[in-house]
Design a protein around this nucleic acid. Structure first.
Lengths: 218, 218
DNA sequence: TGTACATCAGTGAACGCGCGTTCACTGATGTAC
DNA sequence: TGTACATCAGTGAACGCGCGTTCACTGATGTAC
């Protein structure tokens, strides 16, 4: 009987080639965007024939799905690690750092969606993990005492299924959405280059936004 | 001598066909995203041969540039009209309304950029017009008295070239950037479908963000 | 008003290209006795 | 340890496709005398 997932030489080789394919794919995406990703071009880069890649990925869409998975996984790990030794400020910094390493990787997840494409099921789990990490940090930030209730928070209390059973009070749910959207707002405009010609340092704007988020912790 | 820009039948016809081309192009973009835009497909839709379009646009890139121009122009007009009879809240609503009419149009401008593509020069002027309209609304919102100074505002005071000579004080510059990035943050995540499975109404989140922006007018 | 000419929209054939994907195959690597 | 067999990575040819773009052309529309 074959040991499932065993570490035979062949399997190690397979994993290695698969890794090189995705690595080159990331290179392509960074250079020309996700829509320009081409199996044949990757094969050529690797000195292989095009059809060879079909031993590793069933189709182009399959490869893209793997990249999406990798991106979510990588971000989730980065944030979880950062959360271990820091508060929300540290998390936000980790998020920005991760995004700047490869802007197109961030944008593959949170940027313009391809109208037809449906993300696979298992990705939502990792996406939830990311949100939970942020939600935890928001909860840890809020004062233990009575916090300012908001109408939207009250509304969210009745639509909190997405929080996946997280015990955060309504104002923390609201806080989380504010944190998420604000950080994304600055970050995505920076990554898209919309501050490029404006002459100020985007890092400062990000820091200012973050500071404001931390200040209004009520 | 030919009257430049005269309204001859031929010129009217030209303008009409050009308009139909861009209209179909918008349709394609809405359906399959900007990267899937194809001259041949548009020609087929119009019952024409592919090469015919070259009478109207020098190349595919030329058509995309025209679409970018149209999008900026349309948004600038929408906001300017809205600004005439409303405050920042009205402007924000107009922005969201405009974006929801055709999400891919908003994303063509503010979404994931194509790594190679450079927007044409004249577009930056319209982009500035949009920012000025928002900046004006922010200035009108701030109290006339002494406002809370921020470190980032002070920093911006030394990097205010992008404001194009707008007399807004530093805290208004800061306010504008906050408004812009926050509205974009909510809107872009909504358009990308990231709130889709979460069960709350994105309009409410947008409204809540807007309210918070209006409340902290100091 | 009628004729000669110029303008210009649109056609159809053709170009080269790179794409995703299939298929039958070769040859190397690993496995079983 | 050696031989027979199975597995499987990678090749090369081929498929059909749609793309952007060029070119020489036809035929209709507008202009000038």
């Amino acid at each position: 009987m074959a040991r499932a997932g065993a570490d035979t030489p062949r399997e190690r080789y397979r994993a290695q080639v698969r890794a090189e394919i995705t690595e080159r794919a990331w290179g392509q995406i960074a250079t020309a965007g996700a829509s320009a990703l081409s199996l044949n071009a990757i094969a050529k880069q690797m000195g292989m024939s095009g059809p060879a890649l079909y031993r590793y990925f069933a189709s182009r869409d399959d490869l893209i799905t793997e990249l999406v998975r990798e991106a979510y996984r990588s971000l989730a790990d980065t944030l979880r690690t950062a959360a271990a030794g820091a508060d929300l400020a540290g998390l936000a910094g980790a998020l920005r750092g991760w995004a700047l390493v490869d802007p197109q990787r961030y944008l593959l997840i949170y940027g313009t969606p391809v109208p037809g494409y449906r993300a696979p099921e298992d990705v939502t789990a990792v996406s939830n993990e990311i949100m939970t990490t942020l939600l935890d940090a928001c909860a840890a930030l809020a004062p233990a005492g009575p916090a300012a209730a908001t109408p939207f928070g009250a509304y969210l209390e009745e639509h909190r299924d997405w929080a996946g059973g997280h015990p955060a009070p309504p104002e923390v749910l609201h806080r989380f959405l504010t944190v998420w959207t604000r950080l994304h707002g600055v970050l995505s405009l920076e990554l898209a280059g919309h501050f490029a010609g404006m002459g100020f340092d985007p890092a400062r704007l990000f820091a200012a936004e973050l500071e404001e988020l931390l200040a209004h912790r009520a």
